[in-house]
Each structure stands twice: as structure tokens, then as C-alpha cells.
Write a protein that binds this DNA or RNA. Structure first.
Lengths: 122, 122
DNA sequence: GCTGGCGTTCCCGTCGGGGGCAATGTTTAC
DNA sequence: GTAAACATTGCCCCCGACGGGAACGCCAGC
């Protein structure tokens, strides 16, 4: 299939697909006329990228999953490198959660303080 | 004081200070030679920006606080606009916290699933 | 044979927060 | 007097993940 079809099937844009290719995440065989020619395996890769991006992965962090798929595995997270990224991401998210909790508390305290100074002691 | 002194006192860079000025957050009187000439009130503004940036405020979100200081208030959060930003930020942080909790759970589930498929059932 | 809708490459813009350079002027210390 | 350390404006660069649009090629239907 051509790029437009892959894009609409996957629910993305041709721009995004060319960007993935530029980043080395998606290879694209060409027809004689220069048009990109994709198959089901490419669709699988694009879906993997999308799934991971939706849970906050940077594009670069999807690379081990894409590589795993391209190595012939059914699932992108069947390889050690991908699993290592899961672990790292969980640690990142947990650290960020802890930090955000502190920030929320600070904000609440600042708000309460400012309101008190304004005499809004309700 | 000149820009370099303000920068080192506040623990930032001359570049950042010029950027704040460009964004309209920091006014800078000039001497006859064209050099910026700051005083304690400017330091106060820079510190206010820094404090808010550290808890995740976008530069633009610090504007009401800066305006409040420039209006003569002792504290940047003494004005209604600044307090409104507190409220909005708290809501944003809370929404993000909820989302991150979901993401963390998804990641944990994915990791557990991948490990199980690999037979790492410990 | 022409129009419309695909495709191609290329470059610019986003947004925040600067970095890094050049070319030039000023102040300060010795 | 001169060198070092500051200051000025202005310009282009970066990150991420594309979006917009130009200028052009290709192909199917009428």
C-alpha cells in the first residue's frame, strides 16, 4: 500500500510516517516510480509506535520495541531492551508522580496563604 | 546594578534576563551608555519568576505575579489574577496526576505481561 | 489531453529557554 | 595606556514531533 493508505488505516498522517522513516523507525521500500510501498508489517510497526506514544513514550523510546518487531517477534515487548525501557519508564513516572505531589501541595499551601493574607478566611 | 551582577546574584544568566525583558516580564532602565540598570525591585521580580518556574509554571503564567509585584504589592500572589493562576495550576496538576497514575498502572501491567510471556514468573 | 488527487522533496514554523558566536562599545584595574 | 572583563545588539542554532505549504512528478478517469 502507499503512504496515504497506511496513514489513514493507522489513523495518522503521511507527515508522521515520513518522520518515522527519517528517524530510522520505519523502513519503506520504493516502487519504480519512487512511491513508498508498505505492507502489513509496516502497519504493525506504526501501531506499536502509536500505542507507546499514547502512554507518554518519547519517539526514541519506541525504538527497542520497533527493533524487536523487526527482529521477527510477535510482540514489540518480547525483547530485553524493550523490557528495560518499561522499567525505566515506570521509574520515571513514579519519580514524576512524587514530584508532582509535592508541587500540588506547595501550590495548595501558596493559595491558602495568599487567600489568608487577603482576609478570605472562609 | 548591571545585567551581569543581577544574573549572578539571582543565579541565572544574562541571556535569560534579556529573554524575560523581550517577553515583557522585566523592564530595564538604561544608563546614558545604553547599559541596563537594575535595582532591588528587579531582583525581586527575577526571584519570583524563578520560584514559579521551579514548580512548573510556564513563563507566561508568571506574568500575573510579576504584574502584581510591579503594581507595588509585597508579594506576587497578592492579586486576583495571580490567585486565579494558582487555582488553574492546581487543577492542571491534579488532572495530570490522575493521568500519570493510569499510565503507571498500564506500564506495570505491560511489564508483568511481557515478563510472564518470557516465563519470568517469579 | 486535461483535471484532480495522489505522490515526491525541501524548507520554515511551532514552543520554551536559552547557547554560542560576531562585531563593537565601555568600564575597570594595574 | 592598555588589557581584561564586562556590556550592547543581532544573528543563527538546538531540542520533539511533527504541520504547512511550495514546487514538482505520476497516474487514473473522462
Amino acid at each position: 500500500m502507499r503512504i496515504g493508505e497506511l496513514a489513514s488505516t493507522a489513523g495518522t498522517t503521511t507527515k508522521a510516517l515520513r518522520y518515522y522513516e527519517e528517524r530510522g523507525l520505519l523502513d519503506a521500500p520504493r516502487r519504480t516510480n519512487g512511491y513508498r510501498d508498505y505492507d502489513e508489517s509496516h502497519l504493525r510497526v506504526v501501531r506499536e509506535i502509536q500505542t507507546l506514544r499514547e502512554i507518554g513514550f518519547a519517539l526514541e523510546d519506541t525504538r527497542p520495541f520497533v527493533d524487536c518487531l523487526r527482529a521477527g517477534y510477535e510482540e514489540g515487548d518480547s525483547c530485553p531492551d524493550a523490557i528495560a525501557v518499561y522499567r525505566r519508564k515506570i521509574a520515571e513516572v513514579e519519580a514524576y508522580l512524587a514530584q508532582l505531589n509535592v508541587v500540588r501541595d506547595e501550590l495548595r499551601a501558596k493559595l491558602a496563604d495568599a487567600r489568608m493574607r487577603r482576609g478570605e478566611g472562609n
